[in-house]
Amino acid sequence: MATADSNHEAHWQRTKGLTITVLAIWFIFAFVVHWFAPQLNEFSILGFPLGFYMAGQGSLFAFVVIIFWFARAQNRIDEEFGVAEDADDDE
């Protein structure tokens, strides 16, 4: 029972770590980038002023990437600690 508990605890620690990382990256694209939009507009990307680009497309795309990455990373953690669901659960 003790080992089951410690395995559970270790799994939760890693899960928390991943969640904090995800939220830190999220915070940058949600708030930090847009705070400096006037300065970013001095630069251009694909012909767009960068500040405009980040609010209209860049941050949005970053969110898509973060979520898919998170789903993969969390799966790997679950498998490592043997708490992932069986493969046929997806059907």
């Binding site: 995800v22 694209f29 609010a55 969110f63 979520i67 789903a71």
Partner: peptide, 14 residues
Amino acid sequence: LVGWTGGYVLVASL
């Protein structure tokens, strides 16, 4: 735009 997409990061992680 930013708010209505970034919210999904919270949905997925929390």
